[in-house]
């Protein structure tokens, strides 16, 4: 039997991200982290753990970059 899919998902633009960490701090289920690698600008960009997002949108609002985070929600089957 397959596991129940997550309610949400996030896509992060690692080149727009400035590694401020606000999304990591704000995410309620703590499913974001700062990567160990550096992006073009020399920041550690935020990344999704890959599971557990609820699509609450909080990371989107606390992020100062207009397009660094896209939040998606599971479409009810």
């Amino acid at each position: 039997m397959t596991a129940k899919p997550d309610r949400g998902r996030v896509e992060l633009d690692s080149q727009e991200c400035k590694g401020c960490g606000l999304c990591v701090e704000a995410c309620p289920p703590k499913v974001l982290h700062l990567s160990s690698h550096l992006n073009h600008y020399g920041y550690h960009p935020a990344a999704y753990d890959g599971a557990g997002c609820t699509s609450c949108g909080i990371c989107f609002f606390v992020c100062p970059e207009p397009g660094a985070i896209v939040v998606l929600r599971l479409v009810a089957a």
Binding site: R9, V71, L74
Partner: peptide, 8 residues
């Protein structure tokens, strides 16, 4: 599962 964008 399919997803739709809510915040962009």
């Amino acid at each position: 599962a399919s997803y739709t964008v809510t915040h962009e």
